[in-house]
Amino acid sequence: MSVGLNHYLFLAAVLFVLGLYAVITKKNAVTVLMGIELILNAANINFVAFSRYTDTDMDGQVFAIFVIVTAAAAAAVALAIVLNLYERLKSINLDEADSLSG
């Protein structure tokens, strides 16, 4: 069978779930960030795939670019937060940042 839209979507779904799993399970804040990047990439694949296979011209690609830019900004801020967290807790393990625990 020929590769169509669904193939890309399935790929993106797998990527998304992998990212999700990383976000949920990883203790290390940096690894969680990596998971987030995976999710964003999955979303970007969807945007670009829809841009290619539907009648929406280039809009999907523009969105993908915006997402990439936003991800860069998020990464920068998140990293700053991680460094800050490390200063305070001497650790970047997220399960130790639980001062809101009930």
Binding site: L20, V23, I24, T25, K26, V32, L94, D95, A97, D98, S99, L100, S101, G102
Partner: peptide, 18 residues
């Protein structure tokens, strides 16, 4: 009883939402 859910751990929250 419910305070157990409030672990303060964001990842647990995400998982519950999902």
């Amino acid at each position: 009883q419910l305070r157990g859910l409030q672990t303060g751990n964001i990842q647990a929250y995400i998982m519950m939402a999902l």
